[in-house]
Design a protein around this nucleic acid. Structure first.
Ligand code: NAD
Ligand code: NAD
Lengths: 234, 234
DNA sequence: GGACGCATGTGCACGATTTCACAAAGCAGG
DNA sequence: CCTGCTTTGTGAAATCGTGCACATGCGTCC
């Protein structure tokens, strides 16, 4: 058998938490902290310490028993595992309110996801400059993706155009999509899609508020339902 | 014992999917479809049909065996369960790029979450009108929350100010928070927080891209890793 | 009025994730 | 070097979520 398998497969739930740990660790590092225990990190992340240890164990054994983890080394390892040791240029489809806000947002560049292109279907938007990037016609999408070696696309079109945008992105060679339009996209297997949907988030909050009021009416004063509290002072 | 308990507790995973079903069902209803099977809905939502049935069964038995579900009735029931039978006014803290974009976004109002107020700490922003709402001083937050009966707050401040914003929201009486700042908030138990973090989403995509390239190098051409495909043509 | 076909609702097995609990391991102090 | 204290790394148990499989109930057609 081969020396060591491709690499451990990391559970989805863990992958979703690694960026949180990374953000906290980077802050700690900037603040001069050079060592942290699983419990310390857990408090700052608002999770259980055992979970932190198990999550980190998927990266390898980088802690020191009786001491904790070296913050900088952990930052390095998490970044490596997440593929953040180099930039991932992204292309934005749709240069409306949201598309422009995203393009102008420093958080993209700062975190290693430079906006390498932004396209729109409206000729009225062409060549307007949004935060350093010129808006290009939708037709140039494939060319931009190929020229810049882009594998991540962001959809910021109206819902009705989002499936078309996804199809074009996939055809152009993009393999990961971040979708801001409130519709379910259909894509070939192998393409990873993540959705950010404001309405969904608000409706989930609404559900909890609604439950709260129902519970109050029934005199269940502090029945401690399934709410989640966060620990630690960030 | 009482006639029937408060109401079934719905699993988090299900609550997170109900808004998706709702959106699809509303579309179908608008399109003249008046009946749908669990399989039809499952295809449109990109999930398993059994999951749809189990999810819907938490609302009660509203399907007809051999036939399917009445679309409008399902819309009604889901809306009721999510607490969408009345508006939930929200207050936005931070009137910067994001705060203004959100306030101006029709999606809030349309979906039953009217922006009842927006506050900022910067006097330069006071009284500027953002989509019908006047930006008010941060100090008026408590008053606005009380006057409008607000229970949901949105944080759109820089990360450094987000914890302070959360503290003020909680003190003002808000019990649900949607946080756009990339930090983990610390709040009392009972307060529900949801976070929307662009960097986290992109880093998760980055992880999958990174794995993809590692797999390619090892000649694992189509080893079908843990990717998720979506079904149906939306 | 009865037989047939279809789609729901759900028991059950399975898989994933979380949490517990503790042995193993590093460090400090004597 | 040995003892004691601390914190990791990880089996194993508990919990949660998913999907299969099928009995049940409803509508339709003869
Ligand atoms: N604005 C917000 O704060 C906000 C918040 C959450 C979600 N969203 C969602 O984000 C999406 C965009 O919102 P917005 O406010 O920017 O809308 P918008 O109308 O301002 O912008 C949409 C842009 O997409 C372009 N477009 C239309 N069809 C296209 C196509 N086929 N290919 C490429 N470009 C196309 C339009 O020309 C326009 O420039 C919507 O789906 C909306 O629901 C917006
Ligand atoms: N702009 C985007 O596209 C985008 C995308 C994702 C996430 N975010 C996040 O959203 C947040 C806001 O981003 P932005 O681009 O709007 O920033 P911004 O600087 O444009 O706006 C921040 C606003 O908050 C106000 N503010 C500062 N301290 C405050 C306080 N204590 N109380 C109330 N208001 C206060 C400021 O006066 C300013 O108006 C940031 O945390 C950012 O990381 C932004």
């Amino acid at each position: 058998m081969p020396p060591h398998r491709t690499r451990r497969r990391i559970p989805d739930a863990t992958v979703a938490r690694l960026p949180i740990y990374l953000q906290i660790l980077a802050e700690q590092s900037a603040g001069g902290v050079d060592n942290i225990s699983s419990e310390g990190l857990a408090d700052l992340a608002g999770v259980n310490a055992a979970k932190v240890r198990k999550d980190l164990s998927y990266l390898g054994s980088y802690g020191t028993r009786g001491v904790g983890y070296d913050v900088d080394h952990l930052v390095y390892q998490i970044r490596r595992e997440l593929g953040l040791d180099h930039d991932w240029p992204v292309v934005i489809v749709g240069a409306g309110n949201l598309g422009q806000a995203l393009a102008g947002y420093g958080g993209f560049n700062d975190r290693g996801f430079p906006v390498a292109g932004i396209v729109d279907i409206d000729p009225g938007k062409f060549d307007s400059v949004v935060a350093g990037a010129r808006v290009r016609p939708l037709e140039e999408l494939a060319q931009i993706v190929a020229a810049k070696g882009i594998s991540i696309g962001v959809i910021a079109t109206p819902p009705t155009a989002a499936q078309d945008a996804a199809d074009r992105l996939v055809k152009a060679g993009v393999t990961s999509i971040l979708n801001f339009a409130p519709i379910v996209l259909s894509v070939p297997v192998g393409i990873v899609v993540r959705k950010v949907d404001l309405a969904v988030e608000l409706q989930i909050l609404s559900y909890h508020e609604q439950r709260r009021s129902v519970a109050d009416q029934n005199g269940q004063l502090h029945a401690v339902p399934a709410e989640r509290g966060r620990g630690a002072t960030a």
